[in-house]
């Protein structure tokens, strides 16, 4: 069942050209849907429209099948976690968590019970009387989460909740969030520009660019079957190598006639010295190593070939010498894209 549905949604600020035009999106109940895209792609705007903080210029927004235009944010049964947490600085942790419950006129005994539960769940028990300013970034993040969870909403809206944390804490809280999602059995809509976060958090990923949906799919689909160059490049680190098909054709490599771009993932290519000859189901590209990056469990090579510069990720920890090497890629790992940058299925 669809929990949230956007029908032909358009959003424009003042008289500027619309940031989102005729967007259609269905978010199914109980999913963890990640809105992913570079900054300025409209992902936060979509989230804020679902929350009711921004009004759609045209189109319909449905929650549980009901049009919610004109329904106040507080009446939409959604809770939001802001990027900067948006904790009330004049209230202590407990009051922050309690504020929404008080406004909903939930009796005191029930409030106390819920707060104690949540505090235990997110590990804030001893900080209840502290002010937000006295907490670390990670603790503030937990308060923001607690404030959302305590209302027992059907939908959690998260606007880049991890982007203000340092890398270590981000990984830790990311795992906590996944755990939380499994426990709460609610619908998550999660906005991020970080593809790793999207891959790990999402059951569905909605990839956006300039207010348009580029692809919707599960993380394996988005990674394994990119529908266009944008998706192919956005997902994966380093991103997919995209080479000109013309150049490859001139070198007598087998490329479908209509293809304009050929792509392959750095981790699907193998680089291993001159002696390696291509087998029947492989292509070989000759190239010179420009740079080597030892990352501990893998080595990243930047390779200059007649077809352009590309990256190869090698799990063979024997560092190769600078110089010419051949790079082998299985035919099945090659992606072809047409003139409109859409994937061609061959």
């Amino acid at each position: 069942m669809d929990k949230i549905e956007l029908r032909n949604i358009t959003k424009a600020y003042a008289k500027n050209p619309p940031v989102i035009e005729n967007l259609n999106l269905k978010i199914s109940e109980g999913s963890s849907t990640v809105l992913l895209g570079p900054s300025g792609c409209g992902k936060s705007t979509i989230l804020r429209m679902i929350a009711g903080l921004e009004k759609e210029t045209a189109g319909e927004l449905l929650i549980d099948g009901k049009n919610v235009s004109g329904v106040e944010p507080g009446d939409r049964h959604v809770a939001m976690v802001f990027q900067n947490y948006a904790l009330y600085p004049t209230m202590n942790v407990k009051e922050n968590i309690e504020f929404g419950l008080k406004n909903l006129r939930i009796p005191k005994a029930e409030r106390e019970k819920r707060i104690q539960e949540i505090a235990k769940m997110v590990g804030l028990g001893e900080y209840l009387s502290r002010k937000p300013q006295q907490l670390s970034g990670g603790q503030r993040q937990r308060v923001a989460l607690a404030r959302a969870i305590v209302k027992k909403p059907a939908v959690f809206l998260m606007d880049e909740p991890l982007s203000n944390l340092d890398a270590k804490l981000r990984n830790q809280i990311r795992t906590d969030l996944i755990e939380l999602y499994r426990k709460l059995n609610a619908t998550f809509v999660y906005v991020t520009h970080d593809q790793v976060e999207a891959m790990s958090m999402g059951t569905d990923i909605v990839l956006l660019e300039k207010g348009e949906i580029r692809q919707i799919g599960s993380p394996p689909e988005i990674y394994g079957k990119p529908e266009n160059v944008f998706t192919a490049r956005f997902i994966g680190s380093p991103s997919m190598n995209i080479l000109s098909a013309e150049e490859l054709k001139r070198a007598d490599l087998p490329v479908p006639p209509k293809a304009k771009y050929v792509g392959f993932r750095p981790e699907k290519a193998s680089i291993g010295g001159r002696e390696k000859a291509p087998r029947e189901n492989e292509v070989a590209l000759q190239g010179t190593i420009l740079a080597r990056e030892m990352l501990g469990d893998q080595i990243l090579y930047k390779v200059q070939s007649p077809f352009g510069v590309f990256h190869v990720k090698s799990f063979d920890l024997q560092m190769l010498e600078y110089g010419t090497n051949s790079v082998l890629i299985k035919n099945s790992d090659l992606f072809y894209f047409d003139e409109e940058e859409n994937r061609m299925v061959c």
Partner: peptide, 14 residues
Amino acid sequence: PQYLYEAANLDHAK
């Protein structure tokens, strides 16, 4: 900051 009002709005505050 505007986001405090937004948070309050989501918290059903009159």
